[in-house]
Simulated assay, not measured.
Amino acid sequence: MSIPALGLGTFRLTGQTVIDSVRNGLDVGYRAIDTAQIYGNEVEVGQAIEESGVPRNELFLTTKIWTENLSRERLIPSLKESLTKLHMESVDLTLIHWPSPADTVLVAEFMLALAEAKEQGLTKQIGVSNFTIGLMQRAIDAVGVKEIATNQIELSPFLQNRKAVAFAQSQGIHITSYMTLAYGKVLKDPVIQAIAKEREATPAQVALAWAMQLGYSVIPSSTKRVNLESNLAAQSLHLSADELARIEALERNDRLTSPDGLAPAWD
């Protein structure tokens, strides 16, 4: 099962806000939704999906295991709790959200537990998030590269994460980009704005199209229906080689997500 190129993210959205975002997203055509245990919105995401009337078999739902649930004893029970909140028998993709701080739980332990969750039918695919090259290699050593569907990492025109991307792609691991718009900073960039003007597109469409054209999946979020519709239209924008090169030149290693005590030593 392939991972959809464009999905709807729900990071930082809670309560009625996330319900409205997911319902509007499904209404305008999104069929992939990304959530996580730590977001505290799995109940609302499940409610929005139920109320939307979209059949379950048309959806691709991702959740992520939080660090306190990485032990072999906690991982599967915590995923079952997530499924209860989501009102789902299974999700399509389950990720390790962050590697265990200070290796408190070894990569092999949580990857084997995640693989067991897949064997039990709790999730159709498994993967990782915020993993460096070294961590990806340890995950591969634990369960085999064919088990790892994706590595979801911060990636934008300003942080292109080339070393991690190159390694993942060399192994056949798909890349999912989060924060592709860099909290909106990308939308203000003169190069992105110029390409958008030339193409009669929005800056967000340009940035999302750039990532998808490189083969990444993207999961932007929005609380506004008009932006949800606009972002979805990025799938039909095809950038030229020159435009891709202009965006490639924006790399500046501008990482925005690197929480103390949680982030690994980045490549």
Rank of each mutant, 00 (worst) to 15 (best):
A201I: 07
K185R: 15
E50S: 13
R246L: 09
S170L: 04
E251F: 00
L122N: 01
A233S: 14
Y183S: 15
V28H: 03
P4V: 04
T180Y: 02
A211P: 06
F131L: 09
N24T: 07
L8G: 07
I153M: 05
R225W: 04
L95Q: 12
L8K: 03
G29M: 02
N69S: 14
I175V: 09
S78R: 01
D260K: 15
D260I: 11
Q171M: 14
L106P: 07
L214G: 12
I38Y: 09
D20L: 02
L75M: 08
Q205Y: 11
W210C: 14
A102Q: 14
V18Y: 05
A207C: 03
D92Y: 05
T202L: 00
A249E: 05
I195Y: 01
A249C: 12
L208D: 02
K118T: 06
E200V: 05
E198M: 11
W98H: 01
Q37P: 04
E116G: 09
E44G: 10
S230Y: 00
G121F: 11
V45Y: 00
L70T: 07
E68N: 13
K185Y: 12
I126E: 03
A166N: 09
D92P: 06
I175H: 03
G261C: 12
L6C: 10
L181T: 10
A207Q: 05
P190R: 02
I173L: 03
S222D: 03
E51M: 07
V128F: 05
I153V: 15
M111Q: 06
V165C: 12
G15M: 06
M179N: 12
A209R: 05
A245Q: 14
L70N: 07
Q125W: 03
I140K: 08
G29K: 02
P259M: 14
S21C: 02
L95C: 08
M179S: 13
T180K: 00
V145D: 04
K85V: 04
E147W: 07
A249T: 06
M179F: 15
T67Y: 07
T35N: 06
N151C: 08
T14W: 01
I19Y: 13
I38G: 06
R56Q: 07
R246F: 09
F131P: 07
E44N: 09
Y39F: 12
I173D: 02
Q169F: 02
S2N: 11
R72H: 14
L86C: 05
M179P: 08
G53Q: 10
A166D: 15
V143R: 09
M111H: 06
A194D: 10
E200K: 13
R199E: 01
K163T: 08
E147T: 06
A149H: 00
A139G: 13
S2F: 08
E248N: 14
S170A: 15
T17N: 15
E229C: 03
H174Y: 14
V91A: 12
L244C: 04
L114G: 00
A142S: 15
T63D: 00
F110V: 10
L237V: 12
L13A: 13
L155G: 03
H174V: 10
V143G: 09
S100E: 08
L244Q: 14
